[in-house]
Design a protein around this nucleic acid. Structure first.
Length: 328
DNA sequence: ATGGTTTTTACTGCGTC
DNA sequence: GACGCGGTAAAAACCAT
């Protein structure tokens, strides 16, 4: 058999199936219109009442039966799944009709009992959903934190923030990922080991816009106190990324403290300030680093570094008698 | 939306190795 | 001549209003 022959045979069989499916829109017995009974999930002929099994979601059993007995033993039942609910609708719901399995009305005692059961069932169900939500979020936080090299205490702070967000019902309308990322970002800043927005975004599945939005929202709603990031907290990382000495680090910190004293740091990006301080400190301690290298590790433009570090040096000069400007 | 501030981009000129 | 550095103008991003 040649290839073309094979292909044509396949085409034929596919067409057969298609026509078969098309025919099922009409009753195979009498040919009249079919109607779908959503409550029972059945498709019924309007004329002869024949029940046609045409459930579009259920693609059939995942097992194969070779005789009726086997079919019975392997058969399972369950509600159809839906993506509309957090748990895909797989959890138990207690019906609202006050009827028993035979459709008879319940006694008032029984009705009260059922009402209590509904209440408790709902409580456990939503609680479980929150647990699941939390579990996923904590996993994400953990993943991102280790990708960013953040210590354990930051993760814990982040999870505390996330729990609070969950308790305050801040989640609806926002992605788990988004809130988790925002929580981590806030936690890192609070712990004094900040990561820039861009850094956080690279390990998260959400984009920058969403992060800033959810972050602002979460901070406002939870009344989190997040002080502006301290430029000094970026210094150690830059220093080690650039293989610079402890002395340089010390100098950089001095420069930043002076800058704070003279107040030139307000309104400027802390990262840029830190990067400039590191660069300036490297110059002062005769270590070779280019502006390009610093701008690389700090994700800051060279121009910003230039502007900042000029200001830093001016500030220390103005202060007069500072050790930073005395040597070299 | 708008205006003010900061940062980035792109380009140019200078000195040095 | 490539590289590091400094400067500038215009564009873009950010933020409070």
């Amino acid at each position: 058999m040649t290839d073309t022959e094979v292909r044509s045979r396949i085409d034929e069989s596919e067409e057969e199936q298609e026509t078969k499916e098309d025919e099922e829109w009409n009753c195979p017995e009498c040919g009249s219109r079919l109607e779908t009974d959503t409550e029972h999930g059945e498709t019924v002929c309007t004329e002869c009442g024949l029940v046609v099994e045409a459930d579009e979601i259920d693609r059939g059993p995942e097992w194969r039966a070779f005789d009726p007995g086997e079919r019975d033993s392997k058969s399972r039942v369950g509600a159809p799944t839906t993506r509309m609910m957090h748990d895909k609708g797989l959890s138990t719901n207690i019906g609202w009709q006050n009827q028993d399995a035979y459709g008879r009305a319940l006694s008032s005692r029984q009705r009260q009992k059922m009402q209590r059961l509904r209440t408790w069932n709902e409580r456990f169900r939503t609680r479980n959903s929150k647990e699941r939500n939390l579990k996923q979020a904590l996993g994400e936080i953990d993943r991102m934190a280790s990708a960013l090299g953040l210590p354990k205490n930051v993760r814990e702070t982040a999870s505390v923030i996330y729990r609070r967000a969950l308790d305050e019902d801040l989640l609806p309308g926002r992605s788990i990922e988004g809130v988790a990322t925002a929580a981590l970002y806030a936690a890192a800043r609070q712990a004094g080991t900040p990561r820039s927005l861009d850094e956080v975004v690279t390990v998260s599945r959400i984009d920058r816009m969403e992060l800033t939005r959810t972050y602002r929202y979460v901070v406002r709603q939870l009344n989190l106190e997040v002080k502006p990031a301290d430029p000094e907290s970026y210094v150690p990382r830059f220093i080690s990324d650039l293989d610079l000495s402890d002395e340089t680090e010390h100098r950089a910190r001095e420069l930043l403290r002076n800058a704070k004293r003279t107040g030139i740091h307000s309104g400027k990006s802390p990262v840029g300030l830190a990067a400039a301080a590191v660069y300036a400190a490297a110059l002062l301690t005769n270590q070779k680093v280019t502006q390009a290298e610093v701008s690389e590790v700090a994700n800051i433009s060279e121009v910003t570094i230039r502007n900042r570090y000029k200001e830093l040096l001016n500030a220390t000069d103005d202060l007069g008698g500072q050790p930073a400007s005395a040597t070299n």
